[in-house]
């Protein structure tokens, strides 16, 4: 893995105004993502985890310039190309669209039932005008379909003829046909059965290595992330609370939230009831986040300082970053 950074977010915030607001005074806003600093290295398989409502999807979309960036920047650097997504012009944006792609969660909703598989996969090429004529398009479609282990004889069929796993492979082929450099996979295996999920995960991993792609893999399932990602970031209520190489994070989690998340995963061993700390309560509403550390309302270790000061991300080792006032004490 090279240390070059492909995507770099600085103080990234995405706020959505609520339609309903007071007649006078400022409209309330949902701070979906707030002050996130994130570097995604070129060629990495970067995991982003958190509970629903933590802002994972919004962060992923902001990196694709598919969500309005309220404050801060996202920078895309690849060789000679250097885009700042907040200042990008239309020509550059068009180019960025070929370089970045999104794979959706639900393979049943993401494919048009009225288009054949060939047309679905070919559409990005046609819309972006990346090929000279139908022959080249067909060739590109067949090439990527083969890579995604689709049966080439099935390209003339419609999506309804395929199972969930096959449909997800079609979605992946569509996302990769424009030869992107950066792919956001948003809960791409969440809708699949375990036996199929393993197949799609292996496929993503193989393709990523083969094509030298950079993945932002968004998931709520920590065990899936642990298996495919090399770097993981944990989000809570719009903030990053911890990022680390996968092995570090799972072996030595620093943030109390990460620890709680890990201990909440039901163990396969019936005689190993999770004795570790359990979280009380639920994630607060992002319209009305608590002051100080966002996790203080559920954190068993919260002290007065946590209720006032919001902790900044600090390095616990070179690659391991954590935002908690007490992480050092809690290690003992």
């Amino acid at each position: 893995m090279s240390d070059d950074v492909l995507i770099s977010a600085r103080d990234l915030s995405v706020h959505y105004p609520l339609a309903k607001g007071g007649l006078f005074g400022p409209k309330p806003v949902v701070k979906a993502v707030e002050g996130v600093n994130l570097d995604i290295a070129k060629g990495s398989f970067f995991g982003l985890v958190g509970e629903s409502g933590s802002g994972k999807t919004t962060l992923g979309r902001a990196c694709l310039k598919a969500a309005p960036i309220t404050r801060g920047t996202v920078r895309y650097t690849d060789g000679d190309v250097d885009y700042s997504l907040t200042e990008i012009d239309n020509t550059q944006l068009k180019d960025y669209r070929t370089r970045s792609q999104l794979i959706f969660q639900d393979p049943y909703a993401a494919l048009s039932p009225r288009m054949t598989v060939r047309d679905i996969i070919a559409e990005p090429l046609e819309v972006m005008g990346l090929t000279n004529g139908r022959e080249e398009t067909d060739e590109r479609v067949r090439e990527i379909a083969a890579k995604c282990r689709l049966n080439l004889e099935h390209l003339r069929r419609f999506p309804h003829a395929f199972s969930g796993g096959q449909r997800q492979r079609i979605s992946i082929a569509r996302a990769l046909v424009s030869r992107p450099r950066f792919v956001v996979a948003d809960e791409s295996v969440a809708a699949l059965d375990v036996s199929i999920q393993a197949d799609v995960l292996n496929l993503l991993r193989d393709i990523q290595q083969e094509m030298g792609l950079t993945f932002l893999f968004i998931s709520h399932d920590l065990s899936v992330v642990a298996h495919v990602c090399d770097h993981v970031a944990v989000m809570y209520l719009g903030r990053l609370v911890e990022t680390a190489p996968t092995k570090d994070l799972f072996k030595a989690p620093r943030h109390p939230y990460t620890k709680a998340l890990l201990s909440a995963i039901p163990s396969l061993d019936p005689d190993d009831p999770n004795k570790a700390q359990k979280l009380e309560g639920e994630i607060p509403s992002p319209t009305n986040p608590p002051p100080g550390c966002k996790f203080q309302t559920r954190c068993p270790f919260a002290v007065d300082k946590c209720r006032v000061d919001e902790p900044k991300l600090e390095h616990s080792s070179t690659d391991h970053v954590v935002a908690c006032h007490r992480w050092q004490e809690l290690m003992e």
Partner: peptide, 8 residues
């Protein structure tokens, strides 16, 4: 449900 809620 989310894992932490699932555990509850």
């Amino acid at each position: 449900l989310d894992v932490t809620i699932q555990a509850q």
